[in-house]
């Protein structure tokens, strides 16, 4: 039984990680709190719903969701954010505007009602763990979460692009001084953030339904994960996802009425003890080389 609870926690953690990793990465390289990520999330949610509704099968539908999120993000970065380079505050307000527009556009086109997504075949089944049924879809969620973490971590650690991205996150000025062109890196990372948000949206549909305000509803969790983990840190995001996901599952099992509260309590606790987040750096370090 406890195994079942732990697996639920892990599947939540996997979802939170995919949901928040993009936001964290984008903050790392752009310094932008990317509200629009909630918009790409909703776009991905509906894209997957559309694909599944047309009998595409889960893999093409989910890839489609990620692509929709990524393409939207790329368009936004190139047309709206890039001209505001150097004006971080303006960029944040712009991403807020993009989120509002995307949410409302989805609401306009598909209506405010909740659509249900039906999984078929193996993914609609459950397996028994410790005498309790556990949905196969949630196992898939864990697998995808692990896969995304490994891909991100390995790509950042072992590829040239990953090295340049990390250099840009460390200091954009120093990266330029080392001959790295930072502008395309920003576009790439921002589009990647959009893809992850879109994929997270696709993964959200099967267990919570498809509705326009889903993005805003999950934004709270994203922010909690990112505050707890430390902005811009992928391992921090993973650690925070695990803490929040497992705490939510365990507390939800033993004290169901506190399930929602526990996230916020964890966040407040972390803030009190470690304001920079689990794996963030202490405040005060600036990019001293910036103009």
């Amino acid at each position: 039984m406890i195994l079942n609870v732990l697996l639920s926690g892990l599947s939540l953690a996997a979802f939170y990680f995919i949901l928040s990793a993009g936001l964290s990465l984008v903050f790392g390289i752009m310094g932008v709190l990317n509200f629009a990520s909630a918009g790409y999330f909703v776009a991905g949610l509906y894209a997957a719903w559309f694909g599944l509704g047309h009998g595409w099968g889960i893999l093409p539908a989910f890839i489609f969701a990620a692509v929709v999120g990524g393409v939207l993000a790329l368009l936004v970065e190139v047309s709206l954010l890039r001209p505001l380079y150097g004006n971080v505050g303006g960029q944040i307000l712009t991403t807020l505007g993009v989120m509002l527009i995307l949410d409302e556009a989805v609401n306009w086109v598909f209506g405010p009602q909740i659509q249900q997504e039906q999984m078929t075949g193996l993914l609609s089944q459950t397996v028994m763990f410790g005498g309790m049924p556990f949905p196969v879809f949630r196992l898939l969620l864990i697998a995808v979460g692990v896969l995304i973490f490994l891909l991100l971590a390995l790509a950042l650690r072992y590829t040239g692009l990953g090295l340049r991205v990390r250099a840009g996150v460390d200091s954009q000025t120093l990266a330029e001084l080392a001959g790295v062109r930072v502008a395309p890196l920003r576009s790439i990372v921002y589009a990647l953030g959009g893809m992850l948000a879109g994929l997270a949206g696709a993964l959200y549909g099967p267990f919570s339904g498809v509705y326009p305000s889903a993005g805003l509803d999950t934004l709270l969790l994203t922010f909690i994960v990112v505050v707890v983990g430390g902005l811009g840190s992928i391992p921090g995001t993973l650690a925070a996802s695990l803490v929040i996901g497992l705490a939510e599952a365990l507390v939800g099992f033993f004290v169901p009425s506190l399930a929602l509260t526990v996230n916020v309590l964890v966040m407040i606790l972390v803030l009190l003890l470690r304001p920079q987040g689990l794996l963030g750096k202490p405040p005060g370090r600036r990019d001293t080389h910036a103009a």
Binding site: G230, S233, K281
Partner: peptide, 20 residues
């Protein structure tokens, strides 16, 4: 501007390394 405010406060924000 709101932009300038956010920008100046950004710089003193805590930051994590990507792979730490």
């Amino acid at each position: 501007t709101t932009g300038a405010i956010l920008e100046s406060s950004d710089q003193s924000a805590p930051r994590g390394g990507l792979l730490r």
